[in-house]
Amino acid sequence: MIKLQRVNKYYPSGAGRLHVLKDIDLTIEQGDYLSIMGPSGSGKSTLLNMLGLLDTIDEGEYTLEGHPTRALGEEQRAELRARYIGFIFQSFQLIDRLTAFENVALPLILAEVPTRERRQRVNRLLEQVGLAHRAEHRPPQLSGGQLQRVAIARALVMQPTLILADEPTGNLDQQSGNDIVHLLEALNKEGITLIVVTHDNAVGERAQRRIRMVDGVISQL
């Protein structure tokens, strides 16, 4: 379960400061499917960064799976990220010199999971996203849709409870985009909390809970 209580975030801007998130209160249950939409600069990416523990909040409290996070140091936040959160990015963020297999295995390598178990888990996930035959290919040899599948496999490999997707279809054609959305929804059906930030109304409309952000304030639709 995720709980945001009166969360505020400011960015320094010139002489003053920019109030980016204004008193956000939000509760997300395990297994929820939530989309965050809104114009550029509305603060939706900032909200995603907060939820992903990539950035710190200035006021309020964010509780992730029962862990209050505001007072945590960088190392502890890294630990929580590894344990609970899988990230999916618009530009995939795969490492070009590593194969698909190695990219997916990266979080396991960082967490010092034994090689045998690593191989099993990565192979199972590549199978699940339909890329078992591409395991030894490097990112430049794969299509956009395939890259995002590799990224999804990487996000899942630590068995997170929450998937944060930042414009997951933003760099994909219609067909690949649909495939990716269906893949993510299938994961959600298995019980993973799914939060998607998107510009694309067609993608956003599919979520059970839709949140609109304007000027740092959220409104539920």
Binding site: G52, L54, E74, E75, A78, E79, R81, A82, R83, F87, Q93, I95, L106, P107, L110, A111, R154, M158
Partner: peptide, 16 residues
């Protein structure tokens, strides 16, 4: 920088 950011996002500590 981006790669390092990624490593950190997926759980790498400063020490690592």
């Amino acid at each position: 920088r981006q790669e390092i950011g990624l490593l950190k996002a997926i759980g790498a500590s400063r020490r690592l």
